[in-house]
Each structure stands twice: as structure tokens, then as C-alpha cells.
Computed example of a mutant assay.
Amino acid sequence: MPRPASEIETGRLEARVPVHIYERMQRAAKRRGMTLTGYLIAMAGEEADVLRLATEDRVRFAKALIDPPAPNVRLARAARRHADLIAPR
């Protein structure tokens, strides 16, 4: 069960930014009806969940999805163990 906001341990973040950037962030937060702190936490959280790949990596990933490699011995063994543990009763 999540802890109430008043019980969550926090850390402090300080940053010096140009005034025009600070004002832009304040406006962006206000447009969303948020405090600057809330806005920065939300934006950092969104960005942290985004995975960006270089072109070469995207191509390699797509090829692996289209033509996946055969499972190696360890993966096959793990799949069997999983099937034994999760078998329908």
C-alpha cells in the first residue's frame, strides 16, 4: 500500500538556470495547473520512462522482433521450469 505523501522520504534538488528558462518552466507548470516542483517531477518521470535508441539499435531490435533467435539452453530450461511452476491445476 502506498505511503501518504507526508511520509515519503524526500531529497533536495537545487539548480541555477537562466531566468528566461525558469520563467518558461513556471509558465508551463501554471498552464497545467501545477507547482513548478510538481511539473519538474512529472516531466522527469515521463522522460525517465522513455527509451531512446540509436538508429542502429532500432534496426537491430526490429530485426530481432521479426526474426527472433532460437532460444539457448538456459532460456529453454527456464521456460520448462516456468511451465512446471505455473501449470494449470
Rank of each mutant, 00 (worst) to 15 (best):
M1E: 09
M1W: 05
P2K: 07
P4I: 02
A5E: 15
E9M: 05
E9Q: 10
E9G: 04
E9K: 11
T10V: 11
T10M: 11
T10S: 09
T10L: 10
G11H: 05
G11E: 04
R12L: 11
L13H: 10
L13T: 06
E14A: 11
A15S: 09
A15N: 03
A15T: 09
R16L: 13
R16N: 11
V17K: 03
V17F: 06
V17P: 02
V17E: 03
P18V: 01
P18A: 11
V19S: 14
V19A: 15
E23C: 01
E23V: 08
R24Q: 15
R24K: 15
R24M: 08
M25Q: 08
Q26W: 04
R27P: 00
R27D: 13
A28L: 13
A28T: 04
A29F: 00
A29N: 02
K30L: 10
K30P: 00
K30S: 12
R31Q: 15
R32M: 08
R32S: 08
G33Y: 02
L36S: 01
L36P: 00
G38K: 01
Y39N: 00
Y39K: 01
Y39Q: 01
L40H: 00
A42L: 08
M43L: 13
M43D: 02
A44G: 13
A44R: 00
G45V: 02
E46G: 07
E47V: 01
E47D: 08
E47N: 12
A48G: 03
A48K: 14
A48D: 07
D49M: 09
V50K: 15
V50T: 11
L51R: 15
R52C: 05
R52A: 08
R52E: 12
L53Q: 13
L53M: 14
L53K: 11
A54I: 03
A54Q: 12
T55W: 10
T55D: 15
T55M: 10
T55S: 12
E56G: 08
D57K: 06
D57A: 13
V59I: 14
V59G: 02
R60Y: 02
R60V: 03
R60W: 03
R60I: 02
A62E: 12
A62T: 09
L65P: 00
I66H: 10
I66W: 09
I66S: 09
I66D: 09
D67W: 09
P68F: 05
P68G: 04
N72G: 14
N72R: 11
V73M: 08
L75A: 14
L75V: 12
A76S: 12
A76G: 06
A78D: 13
A78G: 02
A79E: 14
R81Y: 05
H82M: 03
H82P: 00
H82W: 06
H82I: 02
A83R: 14
A83M: 06
A83Q: 10
D84K: 08
L85Q: 13
I86P: 00
I86S: 10
R89Q: 11
